[in-house]
Simulated assay, not measured.
Amino acid sequence: MNRNVLALLCVSVLAAACSKPGNVDINSGGPRTVQTQSRSEPIFYNGKHYALNYTYNDAMKAFDVKVSGTTAAMKPDSQKDAINIASSSLGYFACPEGQRGRLVGSPKFNGGVWALQARCG
């Protein structure tokens, strides 16, 4: 009897699933656009709090990114942290899925703020 109940239940679920039209959109390849809207975000990285600000520079086809510390000022030796914060944050907020930000040119440090340019890729 248990086998019959289980079989009936399976058939009922399958029939119910097939009776309604699906609302599944399948986009092979999907839209792969960069989100170019300016953004400011608080970032928590390696136990510290930072502020990320970026704008899209249309002439350079790259993001102008600034990373600063909020709990403590960034220092000249924190370039690697600034690059990691910028590349992963752009990958999350602006780049198409599966892409990260990649550095364009050299980062510049001035007064506790790292400024750099990055593109999705």
Results as ranks from 00 to 15, higher is better:
residue 95 C to D: 05
residue 80 K to W: 01
residue 101 G to C: 05
residue 26 I to H: 02
residue 91 G to C: 07
residue 88 S to N: 04
residue 103 L to E: 03
residue 40 S to G: 03
residue 18 C to T: 03
residue 45 Y to F: 15
residue 112 G to F: 09
residue 73 A to W: 02
residue 105 G to E: 10
residue 85 I to E: 03
residue 70 T to W: 12
residue 72 A to E: 08
residue 69 G to S: 13
residue 121 G to K: 11
residue 46 N to C: 01
residue 99 Q to A: 09
residue 2 N to M: 10
residue 42 P to D: 13
residue 76 P to F: 12
residue 91 G to T: 08
residue 84 N to E: 09
residue 78 S to A: 11
residue 23 N to T: 07
residue 90 L to M: 08
residue 41 E to A: 06
residue 64 D to K: 08
residue 50 Y to G: 04
residue 25 D to G: 10
residue 51 A to G: 11
residue 50 Y to W: 02
residue 110 N to H: 12
residue 45 Y to T: 02
residue 51 A to L: 14
residue 104 V to K: 02
residue 52 L to V: 00
residue 61 K to T: 10
residue 61 K to H: 14
residue 53 N to T: 08
residue 33 T to R: 07
residue 3 R to N: 12
residue 112 G to H: 05
residue 32 R to E: 06
residue 110 N to P: 02
residue 40 S to A: 08
residue 108 K to T: 15
residue 93 F to V: 01
residue 8 L to G: 15
residue 92 Y to Q: 05
residue 73 A to P: 01
residue 85 I to Q: 09
residue 103 L to F: 00
residue 34 V to D: 08
residue 98 G to V: 14
residue 109 F to Y: 15
residue 46 N to Y: 09
residue 58 D to L: 11
residue 9 L to K: 10
residue 118 A to M: 02
residue 79 Q to D: 01
residue 42 P to T: 02
residue 40 S to L: 01
residue 26 I to R: 07
residue 12 S to C: 15
residue 81 D to W: 10
residue 29 G to D: 11
residue 59 A to C: 03
residue 109 F to L: 04
residue 11 V to H: 04
residue 108 K to V: 15
residue 90 L to K: 02
residue 111 G to I: 02
residue 37 Q to C: 02
residue 38 S to A: 14
residue 41 E to D: 06
residue 79 Q to S: 10
residue 83 I to S: 07
residue 99 Q to T: 14
residue 77 D to F: 12
residue 79 Q to H: 06
residue 102 R to P: 01
residue 41 E to M: 04
residue 38 S to P: 15
residue 10 C to H: 08
residue 105 G to H: 11
residue 30 G to F: 10
residue 117 Q to F: 10
residue 103 L to Q: 07
residue 7 A to S: 15
residue 76 P to V: 13
residue 53 N to L: 07
residue 14 L to Y: 04
residue 90 L to D: 02
residue 112 G to W: 12
